[in-house]
Nucleic acid binder design. Structure first.
Length: 457
RNA sequence: GGCGACGUAGCCAAGUGGUCCAAGGCAGAGGUUUGCAAAACCUCCAUUCGGCGGUUCGAAUCCGCCCGUCGCCUCCA
């Protein structure tokens, strides 16, 4: 397949360098509930993982948790918990949210605090090679020496000179130069800390991802993923550290960045406070609808969070569900051939994971299945392919579950018996009253030649 | 200020030189079906791709300018 890489700024043929595709995706900082921007990124890389497997590759995907940083410490102080407890709480919440979105777990979910020895080894190595230095002011901080790496800036398309023009770079006392960034941060009293050759402290944000990628996937990885907002400075720094430390280039063969979710015209972000949590979204909409909403636009473009538009996907997902599940009388002696649809799906998905077109192919197949059903053709094989392709996009095609407050299956069946009896007596007013009650309870019914069927909407 | 992305029907959104002068979803109109519905099916729904110029036999697709929206440059998926 072809994949776009931010580093080369073009689409190139993708093949893994080794037996399995190695993929590192930046995960969350466990300081707060996950928001729908995290859902977007997670769904995109979940689909990339699923699709690569569908194409026959083994995939090793690593997604980290940053479980120590300033925000977690601040949160812990605010909630009266330890930083470890705060991180654990939000890690578990992330897993629940992503499970409910049908995002498959990564092969590994390492946490920064479990990787301290590897991080320290990496920092030591960078110091030995002259790419890093302990702060001159004896603060116990260690910084990466940006000027030691002539290629710095190649991912984000910036030069060190341009960065120096930015007026908002803090000049910390121990730094040699403003663009230098922290690899190791000395801890303040009461903060979580680990012993190191430079005194007690904790890792900087960028180095942990370099260390975890190296530990779990090796010196060169096939795909490095994350949100576009991480391209600079996080990925730029990660790239510089990793290539300087290992001497191997490239650190990542493909840099894949998803576009950002916007809310009311602005990026959804922690600093702006315009967050909608994954749980909020799941309370209002099904996982299939949320995923379809994300996948109807290309992953590299921006996406506006719009609940009305997610709602329309609810109806669209129902269309797929019906096509996949309703049987045909299959008496025509003909059958719907799904092979061309599968081929077309692969063709469009091979082009930089074009999920909007992939979905369009799935809808075309659904349409063909419905036509075939009306004509009495055999559609079982086509329905199996519909489910197969939907699964590549992580769509379950599952019916909504009965809510505690609503009608149970038995309740519905009992009412339908009454309604059928009323209809056979041509008591349509009574029959329609039952139907209205069921519709109000979220039950759709359909009268067909073979009797009445129902489903939850 | 520097760097970058985008602007396609009522809404969302593919398509980046002819081989599709524009996919798919939602909404809408008419019809088939139905006791009436719902779902499904059939037909229709952008002579046009922000504006103005240019390149080309040919452009939504390339180039220039203009208008508008957004991102990164600071923690962020």
């Amino acid at each position: 397949m072809k994949l776009y890489s931010t580093l080369t700024r073009d689409k190139r043929d993708f093949e893994p360098a080794g037996d399995a595709v190695t993929m590192y995706v930046c995960g969350i900082t466990a300081s707060n509930s996950s928001h729908v921007g995290h859902a977007l990124s997670s769904v995109v890389f979940d689909v990339l993982h699923r699709y690569l497997e569908y194409r026959g590759y083994a995939v090793r995907r690593v997604q980290n948790f940053t479980d120590v940083d300033d925000k977690i410490i601040a949160r812990a102080n605010a909630e009266g918990l330890s930083p470890e407890e705060v991180a654990e709480k939000y890690v578990q919440e992330f897993f629940r949210d992503m499970d409910d979105l049908n995002v498959r777990r990564a092969t590994e979910h390492p946490r920064a605090t479990n990787e301290i020895p590897g991080i320290i080894r990496m920092i030591e190595g960078l110091i030995e090679k002259g790419n890093a230095y302990p702060a001159a002011d004896e603060s116990g901080n260690v910084y990466f020496r940006v000027h030691s790496n002539p290629e710095y800036g190649k991912l984000s398309g910036r030069t060190v000179e341009e960065l120096l023009e930015g007026v908002r770079i803090d000049v910390e006392p121990g730094k040699e130069a403003p663009p230098d960034f922290a690899l190791w941060k000395a801890s303040k009293p009461g903060e979580p800390s680990w012993d190191s050759p430079w005194g007690p402290g904790r890792p900087g944000w960028h180095i942990e991802c370099s260390a975890m990628a190296l530990e779990y996937l090796g010196e060169t990885i096939d795909i490095h993923g994350g949100g576009l907002d991480l391209a600079f400075p996080h990925h730029e720094n990660e790239l510089a550290q990793s290539e300087c430390f290992t001497g191997q280039k490239p650190f990542a063969r493909f840099w894949v960045h998803n576009g950002l979710l916007r809310l009311d015209g602005a990026k959804m972000s922690k600093s702006l406070g315009n967050l909608v949590t994954v749980r909020d979204a799941l309370d209002g909409y099904s996982a299939d609808a949320i995923r379809m909403y994300i996948l109807t636009s290309h992953y590299r473009g921006p996406l506006l969070y719009d609940e009305d538009n997610i709602g329309t996907q609810e109806r669209a997902s129902r269309r797929l569900r019906q096509a996949a599940n309703v049987a045909s009388r299959a008496d025509s002696g003909k059958s719907v051939d799904p092979a061309p649809f599968r081929e077309h799906f692969v063709e469009v998905m091979d082009d930089d994971l074009n999920t909007p077109q992939g979905l369009a192919v799935i809808f075309d197949l659904a349409h063909e299945i419905n036509r075939g059903r009306d004509a009495g053709h055999e559609i079982g094989a086509a329905q199996a392919v519909l489910r197969e392709l939907s699964d590549v996009l992580g769509l379950t095609l599952a019916e909504p579950e009965a809510s505690e407050a609503g009608l149970s299956d038995a309740d519905v069946e009992a009412r339908l018996v009454s309604r059928t009896e009323a209809r056979s007596n041509r008591e349509f007013a009574a029959a329609d009253a039952i139907r209205d009650e069921l519709i109000a309870a979220g039950i759709a019914i359909e009268d067909g030649p073979g009797g009445t069927t129902w489903s939850r909407v």
